[in-house]
Amino acid sequence: MYEFSYHKPASVADAVKLLSADPEARPISGGMTLLPALKLRLSKPTALVDLSGIAELRGIRRDGGTIVVGALAKHYEVATNADIKAAIPALAWMASTIGDTQVRNRGTMGGSVANNDPSADYPAALLALGATIQTDRRKLSADEFFTGMFSTALDTGELVTAIHIPVPEKAGYAKMKNPASRYSMAGVFVARGPAGVRVAVNGAGANGAFRAPQMEAALQANWSPDAVAGVKMDPAMMNGDIHGSAEYRAHLVTVMAKRAVQNAG
């Protein structure tokens, strides 16, 4: 780590003020992504603005047909929250598969979506569920928000404050974990709800999480595992590395889509 100064504001307004005053300052939530980067000296912020003292970023509640998740909600809370388990069990299950016990008790949904790691779980879920990301200054649909790997529509100093998730009729998730990191190597989240059928993929894409329109069409016509089992993905869109080629990932996406529909019931 390099030296940095440390702030712990009590409100979103104060946090935003600190962050706008210094473009090299960074917000920190669970620190599960940012701290390793600091320790490896891959990141050199002048200051850390610790969000953990901001009460308004906490909590998970149901608001009619929407689940509202505070940016500071930990993976463990998402996995065990009664409203989420009742309304979107696939999302609760997804959260329970992220990292390990320690990570799930530190890492937050806000931190994860702001980071938009191509192998992270949540971005695909929020794309498929048609979620809205609320920031300190505006609301963005998931489609607008996620703009490519490690990239989002957030401006410098802009904070994710909550995530609004419409409750679907059905949703399912399946993923193949990377054998080493245990992040997603190919994960597919399927949902059928107010916004129609939506399918999104994490882990496999060459440019981060993405929606799969062919699969959406196939499932719109026929909501069954078999409907997606025949939809081939284009390897040119996929990422290849020592753990698997783009062809392998393209194949896995189809398999995981099939299993996700199975899991959705």
């Binding site: 054998p179 753990h243 698997g244 080629s245 392998y248 194949h251």
Partner: peptide, 11 residues
């Protein structure tokens, strides 16, 4: 014998 290697063989 990683999953990718085995998948290649099966495939």
């Amino acid at each position: 014998a990683t999953p990718a290697k085995i998948w290649n063989i099966i495939h």
